[in-house]
């Protein structure tokens, strides 16, 4: 029996789709992987990718400790950012971090205090803040002066804050049970940013920074939006782009042996924050590390010689196909 063209067309479309199902899911042939080892002063990185991929491998020196990542969320406090919005952003970052192999947990204000009070292990923790304000049990203010700056003490001891939202250190969060009128009246910290060495321009407008830092090029950090109160470059390390008026799109403020990594603009879909957290670039001793880059397909081995004790391996351009940091002891 001869099949009519409509039947053939339908069969073809179904065949395309079924083949697509198989190729995209159970029979997807793509693999991206890497291993790294150190022998004496030589580091060897073995890379594998089934699709031709751009790669960048950085050999870096840094503190040789694992660092746990925690999200802070506690709906018992008031925040400039709605709890629903915080949860939404958390979900997005979680998906990205899962992709780059970084796990995390979520802590409330009590959990945060436990971490902050443990200054001896500060170098083993990083906390991501989505709320726009820290809870008053670790960051308090009253009568024109600070009553609690334990968060700063913790950073000085090696703790890292990833500030994912607006209002950097500008407010503290009181419990919901506290009488609350508005942020300007009840919980402002006029000198909050200054306390951490951050400066910004009053009433600046959102802009698109265009002067790119070298580390941004190296790590494919493409977030270049600067909000009104994005940190000025004075006293911070710019990991992203610099605006004409001195605002940074990604600023790391070193505080003691730790510090605060601050997103100068909004979330971008290029996974910038996930790349920063995965690479732990804020902890690198130098932002001009020994590195090798290029394009490869199949297997490739590269070596470094020197004093580096970690390698960051990244395949892809804007979105990572593979990213991992290897601590090599």
């Amino acid at each position: 029996m001869k099949a009519e063209l409509p039947t053939v067309v339908l069969a073809l479309v179904l065949a395309f789709l079924f083949a697509g199902v198989l190729m995209a899911y159970p029979l997807n042939p793509n693999e991206f992987d890497a291993t790294a080892s150190k022998s004496g002063s030589e580091i060897t990185v073995d890379m594998h990718a089934t699709v031709q991929s751009d790669y960048i491998v950085c050999a870096v020196e840094m503190e040789n400790t694992d660092r746990e990542v925690s999200y802070f969320l506690d709906d018992r406090y008031t925040y400039p950012v709605d709890v629903e919005d915080q949860e939404y952003e958390m979900k997005r970052l979680s998906v990205q971090l899962k992709y780059t192999g970084v796990s995390h947990d979520t802590i409330d204000a009590d959990g945060l205090k436990t971490i902050i009070d443990d200054t001896a292990n500060a170098k083993k923790h990083a906390v991501v803040i989505f709320s726009g304000a820290l809870p008053s049990n670790v960051y308090g203010y009253s009568g024109g002066s600070f009553t609690d700056l334990s968060i700063k003490t913790w950073m000085e001891a090696g703790g890292i804050i990833y500030w994912y939202s607006s209002e950097r250190f500008g407010y503290y969060s009181a419990p919901l049970s506290t009488e609350f009128t508005d942020w300007e009246t009840d919980q402002p910290l006029d000198d909050g940013s200054a306390e951490f060495g951050l400066t910004y321009i009053e009433d600046a407008e959102t802009g698109y920074a265009d002067e790119r830092s070298d580390i941004s090029k190296l790590l494919n950090l493409t977030q270049n939006v600067v909000w009104e109160n994005a940190p000025l470059s004075a006293g911070v390390t710019n990991l992203g782009y610099l605006n004409g008026d001195g605002r940074c799109s990604l600023a790391f403020k070193e505080i003691g042996s730790g510090g605060a990594m601050i997103l100068g603009g909004g979330w971008t879909p290029d996974m910038t924050m996930a790349k920063i957290i995965t690479s732990r670039v804020c902890e690198w001793d130098s932002l001009t590390p020994d590195h090798q880059s290029g394009t490869f397909k199949g297997d490739k081995e590269i070596t470094f010689t020197g004093t580096a004790n970690a390698v960051y391996v990244y395949y892809g351009t804007l979105a990572p196909r593979y990213a991992d940091l290897f601590l090599l002891g």
């Binding site: 042939p29 699709v51 394009t295």
Partner: peptide, 22 residues
């Protein structure tokens, strides 16, 4: 799935690897 049907074979067989750049 429609895109997969062309993208995966082409990227697998040909040196097409860089999809986008800044």
């Amino acid at each position: 799935y429609l895109i997969t049907f062309s993208l995966i074979p082409l990227t697998y067989l040909l040196p097409i690897g860089t999809f986008s750049q800044q």
